[in-house]
Nucleic acid binder design. Sequence first.
DNA 1: TCTCCACAGGAAATTGGGGGTT
DNA 2: AACCCCCAATTTCCTGTGGAGA
Length: 409
Amino acid sequence: MAENPYSSSVAIFDDERVLKEDWQPDRLPEREAEIEDIRAALAPVTRGVNAHNLFVFGKTGQGKSVAIHHELNLLQEWAEEENHDLSVISISAQNQTTSYQLAGHLIKTIRGDKTKPSGIDQQSVFDMLYNELRDLEDTIIIVIDEIDTIGTSDDILYELPRARKNGNLREDQWISVIGISNDLKFIENLNPKVKSSLYDEEVEFTPYDANQLTTILERRADKAFLPGVLEDDVLPLCAAFAAQDEGSARQAIRILYKAGDLALREDAETVTEEHVRDARNILERKRVEESMRSLTTQDQVSFLAVVALEARNETPARTSEVYEQYKNIAAKIDTDILAERRIRDHLKELALQSFLESETKTGGIRGGDYHTFWVKVDLNDTIEILGEDTRIEDVVTDIKNTAQKSNTL
DNA sequence: TCTCCACAGGAAATTGGGGGTT
DNA sequence: AACCCCCAATTTCCTGTGGAGA
């Protein structure tokens, strides 16, 4: 009888769930100081007034959201026991790029509607929001995750904390706003009016170092893996990779999970350092692939212009050269040809996303500053990935042929 | 030294599309 | 059908920089 393909001869995982993205740890020993600060900001609620407005910032995977939601859960438990009227509205500003949309999203969340209001002017949307808020409990806490996506359209951040003062709430209502941001610069660039209105307290989550990441991983690994399947260096290596990058616990856990997965696939008895290295490479490649695929057409064409130059060994290339190349490619695939000013921005954006590398040089042939660009990702991979897009397929094939001739692959 | 060029990037205006109402 | 609001992408216009050449 043939062996059932689903029966595995080895076992690696004990409880795989704790490695999933949505698994929430119930304690964060590495963040005790920050949690203390959050508690101090929320504590006024228990004294019958509004919580301090709070700004929490730090890069992704630092436990910001987990810490906030953990504390809010405790606060809600307290409110239930004490019969305190408390409404916590928690939303993510992801995809809400303006105050208008964010207000709409809040209304939608409070009402439980499927659609956001639109087609009316901003003040009317705010008024609509106040109407909804007046129907909530006495103490309102609004949590806005990824608040930085609203950029400079920050009217709502000025409005909300003052809603009570401006008579937009019931007299017995108190409101406070907790903003969570991944972008450290967001706060610096905040309009001073907003800052004074919103900004009572701030808590910064600095990136975990490798040691902290290791202890975080140890707690997860204890539950996730069977005893003895992890070789000694595995956890520190996952931690080191993540620490090198952004210090993100999420990333460290992803690598660990993938490493376990790889070990399982090849029927290995243990997870080795090699598995971790492979896991990291696979994840990194996947990340690049995904963002490359999601580039807009104009970004792709701008990128391809540099790729084409690279294939001919003509990089680093300065902006004007890239732009000439861009015009050719755009004409070939029959897309709009944008102004050079715009392409400069696209190139800058691509450099920011690490597809390109750029250098600013001073004192060119005519003086002043100028930039040079070259491709930072693997040329073969790039050609393979972008070649899947039928719109630009032909151009990519051309580039590939050129590259083979010039031996740049 | 002075003027000019080629480029970077800020600011404001324009465009066009998505979502609505009347 | 005509019109309103919002907004991202883009264009247009402009200022600043600093070596080259007069």
